[in-house]
Design a protein around this nucleic acid. Structure first.
Length: 813
DNA sequence: TATTCGCAAGTTTTT
DNA sequence: CTTGCGAATA
C-alpha cells in the first residue's frame, strides 16, 4: 500500500476539520453545517486512520444514499487507491448481513426486497385474513403505523398495544399476520432489512461480536436521519470497541416522518459520555447573502443545537422573493430566465436546479422548460421501476430468483393474459396458505385442488411448465434471463399487439430495461460479487432517487427538496412557497412538524452557491380547479429587507375569476406537453422581473440548443466517471432519470409543425383532420364549448365518431 | 369466468 | 391525468 503523507491528509483542511480528522479512537460527534466540507472530513479521516496502521477493511462507513456512498468511495480511492474499506447504505449493509445469515431470522438467502407497492399488497392480504374493522382507518394509515413500529425496532412478537388505543389494537392483529405472509413469500420490506438485522445481532451474540470486532472503526453519515432501529444497529456494532464517528446536522433533519429520530443526534453526548464534539461552521458553498437567508429562517426553530454559519465567500447578489399570478407564469418565467442566461453564455443548464416540495409540482415546470427548449432531467427515481410494464417483467425476474415470491406470482401469472382469473387465483392462494406452501408450489399441484375446475387447471399447468423452462436459464447474466422471459412469455409482442403508441412506448421501456441489464452484467462480471440475477434485483430494489441523478450531464435538474439534500448548484429556484404546500397541509399539525418543514426549506436554500430565487403563486391548481393560494408563513421569516422582492404590478389587470375559468378550461393542455398555444397569453403578461427575451423570432431556442449541443459533446469527453470498486450505484441506475434532451425537444417541435393540434375553438366544420388510430376524416358537426366542445368526425374507413376537442388527438395537416 | 369498459376518486417527502 | 374498482359482456 502506498504511504500517504500527513501533508496530503491534513494540508487542505481548516482547523476544525483537522480536529475531526486527527481524532482516531473513541466516539466523535461532528456537527457539520451545510457546505462545510463534511465528505472531505470523512474521507480524510478514514485515510488518516489507515495511515496510522489500521487495516482498511476494519473501517466501515454507513450512509443513507448510494450516491453519498459512491462519492465517498471515489474520493477515498483518490487518497488511498487500494483500500478495502466498505462504504454503503444502511439498507445494503443489512441486506448483505441477512443474506449471509438468512436462516437465523427465518428467511432464505434469496429473499425478495419488496417495494412500497408490493408491501401494500401483502398488507391488504393480511388485513383481509384477520378480518379487522377498518372503518375508522385506511390501509395506508395502518401501513404507516406498522412502519413506525418497525422503525422503532419493535418486532411483531414484542409489540404491546397501548391500552384503549384502537389503532394499536388493530396493529396487534395485523402486524403478525403481515409478517407471516412476508415470511411465507420469503420477502422483506424496507423496514425489515433493519429490523431483522437488529434481531439477528441481538439474538446471535457470536455473530454480533465477530462483526463488532471486524468493524473497529465506524463512520455514520447523516446521523440526524437515523431511526431507532438504525440506532440500535449502531449500538450493537459498537459494543466492544467504541470508535464511532458520526456526522450530522440537526438543522437538516428532514426524515422525521419516516421515523428518523432527531434525539439520536441531540443526545449523542449522553449515549457516549467520552465523546469529543467538533463543529464545522465554516461554509465553502454559498455567498454571504444566501447564508444569511438560511440562517435567519432556521433561527425560528426552537429544537436545535445553536450553530453559526460563516463564510469567506463573496457577498453575492441578494436572494429574490417573487410572487407569480399562476404556476404557468412561475414556470415560464423561470424557464425564460434560464434560457436567457444560457443564451448569453453566462450559465449552462447544469448550473440550475428547480426544487419543490412534492413531485406533482414538476408538471408545469416541465411544460415551460420544453416550450422554451431547455433540456432538463426530472429526478424522480422510482418512477421508472413503478411503471406497470417494468414491474411485470421484474416480477418474472423476482419469481425466478425466489420461487416463494407470491406477490410476484400473482403479478405475472396472468400477464400477458392466460385466462387465469381472480377466482382461480383466490383458490390457489387459499390452498397455498392452508397447506403452508408457496403459490407456485400450489400451482404445480393444481389438479389436486378440488375447488379449481378443469379448464383453469390446464392453463395453470402450462404456466408452470413455462416457468420451469425459464428456470433452466442460467442466472449469471441478467440480460439473457430477461431476453428469455420476453421471448418465452411473449410479453413484448403482447405490448405492441394493439399497435397503439402507448404500447410501443411501453415496449421501449422494456428495451431500456434490457440495456440496463446489459450494463449491469458488464459492470458486475463476477456472480459472487453482487453480480448475476440476485445482485441485480437487490440493487434495483435499493436505488433511490438521488442515486439516479446525473451530475455530469448538462441538464437543468428538477427534484424534490428531500432529493436535493447533499447536493449543490450555482443557481437554485425553490417554487411553490404556499400554505399547504410548504409547509405541507398533511404535516401542519404540531410545532415539531412545522419545524421539520422549515428545515426542509433550509436544506433547499443552502443548496445554492451563487443565486437563489424563492417563489410562490397566487393561484394553484387543486382538486380540479384553480384556487387562491395563501403565501407560506415561512416567507415572513426571511430577511425581506435585504432581499429583492417582486410582486405582480398593481396595474396588472388580474381578474381572479376569469383566470380560474380560463385556466380550468385549459387544464387538459397543461399536462400533455403540447404547447399549441401559450397559456400566458390568456393570463396576461407575466410580471416584469428581468428584461423579456427578444420577440419570438425563434432564434432564442436555436441559440440555446446550440450551446447545449456543445456542452454535451464536451461533457461526453470529460465526464467519464470510471467507477471501479463495488460500484453500488453504477451506470444501471444512471440510465433512468426522465431526461428530455435538446434533440428530443427538437424532434417534438418538428413533429408538431408537421401536424398541428389546434385550440378547441379553432376547429371548424369541413376541416380535414387526422386521428392516430382512425386515420383521416372530415369534421361534420361541432357543438358545445370549453372542455365540452365536441366534434363529430366522419372517417373514410370507420364512419362517424364524436370527440371532445380539448382531449382528443385530432391533428390538422 | 375472464376481459374489458366506464366511472369515481385522488395526488408528501423515501430507504 | 392516473389508478383502482365494480359491472357488463363474451
Amino acid at each position: 500500500m502506498r504511504e500517504i503523507s500527513t501533508d496530503e491528509i491534513l494540508g487542505p483542511l481548516n482547523e476544525q476539520q483537522r480536529a475531526a480528522v486527527t481524532q482516531i479512537d473513541g466516539p466523535l460527534l461532528i456537527l457539520a453545517g451545510p457546505g462545510s466540507g463534511k465528505t472531505r472530513v470523512i474521507t480524510h479521516r478514514i485515510a488518516n486512520i489507515i495511515a496510522h496502521g489500521v487495516p482498511s477493511f476494519n473501517v466501515i462507513a454507513l450512509t443513507f444514499t448510494n450516491k453519498a456512498a459512491e462519492e465517498m468511495r471515489v474520493r477515498l480511492k483518490r487518497l488511498v487507491p487500494d483500500n478495502r474499506t466498505w462504504t454503503g447504505t444502511f439498507h445494503r449493509f443489512c441486506s448483505r448481513l441477512l443474506r449471509e445469515h438468512a436462516s437465523l431470522v427465518g428467511l432464505k438467502p434469496n429473499f425478495t426486497i419488496y417495494d412500497m407497492g408490493d408491501s401494500k399488497k401483502v398488507m391488504k392480504q393480511a388485513i383481509a385474513n384477520v378480518e379487522v374493522d377498518l372503518r375508522h382507518y385506511s390501509p395506508d394509515m395502518l401501513i404507516n403505523q406498522i412502519s413506525n413500529v418497525k422503525s422503532s425496532g419493535i418486532t411483531a412478537a414484542d409489540f404491546q398495544p397501548r391500552p384503549g388505543h384502537s389503532l394499536d389494537a388493530i396493529v396487534a392483529k395485523v402486524y403478525p399476520e403481515y409478517q407471516k405472509l412476508l415470511k411465507m413469500a420469503n420477502g422483506v420490506d424496507f423496514d425489515d432489512l433493519l429490523l431483522h438485522a437488529v434481531d439477528l445481532l441481538t439474538n446471535s451474540p457470536e455473530i454480533r461480536k465477530a462483526l463488532d470486532l471486524k468493524c473497529t472503526y465506524m463512520m455514520v453519515d447523516e446521523y440526524q436521519d437515523t431511526n431507532l432501529a438504525q440506532y440500535k444497529l449502531i449500538r450493537l456494532l459498537n459494543h466492544s470497541v467504541q470508535n464511532l464517528a458520526v456526522t450530522g446536522d440537526p438543522d437538516q433533519s428532514i426524515y422525521g416522518w419516516r421515523g428518523a429520530n432527531i434525539r439520536n443526534i441531540l443526545e449523542f453526548e449522553k449515549d457516549y459520555p467520552a465523546v469529543n464534539v467538533v463543529r464545522l461552521e465554516q461554509n465553502y458553498r454559498s455567498t454571504k447573502s444566501i447564508l444569511r437567508v438560511a440562517d435567519q429562517l432556521i433561527s425560528n426553530n426552537r429544537q436545535r443545537k445553536e450553530k453559526k454559519l460563516v463564510t469567506n465567500n463573496a457577498e453575492g447578489e441578494p436572494a429574490r422573493l417573487v410572487t407569480f399570478p399562476s404556476p404557468q407564469d412561475e414556470g415560464f418565467d423561470i424557464a425564460d430566465s434560464i434560457a436567457l442566461a444560457v443564451q448569453k453564455g453566462e450559465r449552462r443548464p447544469r448550473d440550475f436546479a428547480i426544487l419543490y416540495r412534492a413531485n406533482y409540482l414538476s408538471r408545469s415546470l416541465e411544460h415551460s422548460l420544453r416550450s422554451v427548449g431547455v433540456p432538463y432531467q426530472v429526478v424522480n427515481g422510482h418512477e421508472f421501476y413503478q411503471r406497470k410494464e417494468i414491474k411485470d417483467v421484474m416480477g418474472y425476474l423476482h419469481l425466478l430468483n425466489n420461487p416463494d415470491d407470491n406477490v410476484a406470482l400473482e403479478r405475472v401469472i396472468n400477464v400477458p393474459p392466460r385466462k387465469i382469473g381472480k377466482v382461480t387465483l383466490t383458490r390457489l392462494r387459499n390452498f397455498a396458505q392452508d397447506s403452508n406452501i408457496s403459490m407456485l408450489e400450489a400451482a404445480r399441484n393444481a389438479e389436486q385442488i378440488d375447488s379449481i375446475s378443469k379448464s383453469p387447471t390446464g392453463k395453470i399447468a402450462s404456466f408452470v411448465s413455462m416457468y420451469d423452462r425459464l428456470a433452466s436459464v442460467p442466472t449469471e447474466e441478467v440480460e439473457l434471463v430477461l431476453k428469455a422471459i420476453l421471448e418465452e412469455t411473449g410479453y413484448r409482442d403482447w405490448l405492441t399487439d394493439d399497435g397503439s403508441e402507448e404500447g410501443f412506448e411501453r415496449a421501449r421501456n422494456v428495451d431500456e430495461l434490457v440495456v440496463a441489464a446489459q450494463e449491469y452484467d458488464r459492470d458486475h462480471p463476477d456472480p459472487t460479487e453482487s453480480g448475476g440475477l440476485e445482485g441485480y434485483l437487490e440493487q434495483a430494489s435499493l436505488v433511490s432517487d438521488t442515486d439516479i441523478w446525473e451530475s455530469e450531464a448538462d441538464f437543468v435538474t428538477l427534484m424534490t427538496l428531500h432529493g436535493a439534500k447533499g447536493l449543490e448548484f450555482p443557481c437554485v429556484y425553490i417554487v411553490g412557497l404556499e400554505d399547504g404546500i410548504l409547509p405541507h397541509e398533511r404535516s401542519s399539525g404540531d410545532d415539531d412538524e412545522i419545524e421539520e418543514e422549515r428545515r426542509l426549506l433550509f436544506v433547499g436554500i443552502t443548496r445554492a452557491q451563487e443565486q437563489l430565487q424563492i417563489s410562490r403563486c397566487m393561484n394553484r391548481f387543486r382538486k380540479g380547479s384553480y384556487w387562491p393560494a395563501i403565501a407560506s408563513r415561512f416567507l415572513m421569516e426571511l430577511p425581506r429587507e435585504e432581499m429583492q422582492i417582486f410582486e405582480p404590478a398593481s396595474s396588472h389587470h388580474f381578474d381572479e375569476e376569469a383566470l380560474a375559468d380560463s385556466i380550468a378550461d385549459l387544464d387538459p393542455w397543461m399536462h400533455d406537453g403540447l404547447p399549441s398555444y401559450d397559456i400566458n397569453d390568456d393570463v396576461g403578461p407575466s410580471i416584469e422581473i428581468h428584461d423579456p427575451p427578444e420577440d419570438g423570432d425563434g432564434s432564442l431556442g436555436d441559440v440555446v440548443r446550440e450551446s447545449i449541443a456543445v456542452a454535451q459533446s464536451e461533457s461526453g469527453t470529460t465526464g467519464d466517471f470510471s467507477n471501479s470498486g463495488e460500484g453500488a450505484t453504477g451506470k444501471t441506475a444512471a440510465a433512468f432519470p426522465r431526461i428530455v434532451t435538446a434533440a428530443q425537444i427538437e424532434a417534438e417541435q418538428a413533429a408538431m409543425q408537421a401536424h398541428v393540434r389546434l385550440h378547441p375553438e379553432s376547429y371548424k366544420v369541413d376541416m380535414e383532420v387526422e386521428h392516430p388510430e382512425y386515420g383521416i376524416g372530415v369534421i361534420v358537426e361541432i357543438t358545445g364549448k370549453g372542455t365540452k366542445r365536441t366534434a363529430t368526425v366522419d372517417f373514410e374507413r370507420l364512419g362517424k365518431k364524436r370527440f371532445r376537442l380539448a382531449f382528443c388527438n385530432l391533428r390538422v395537416n
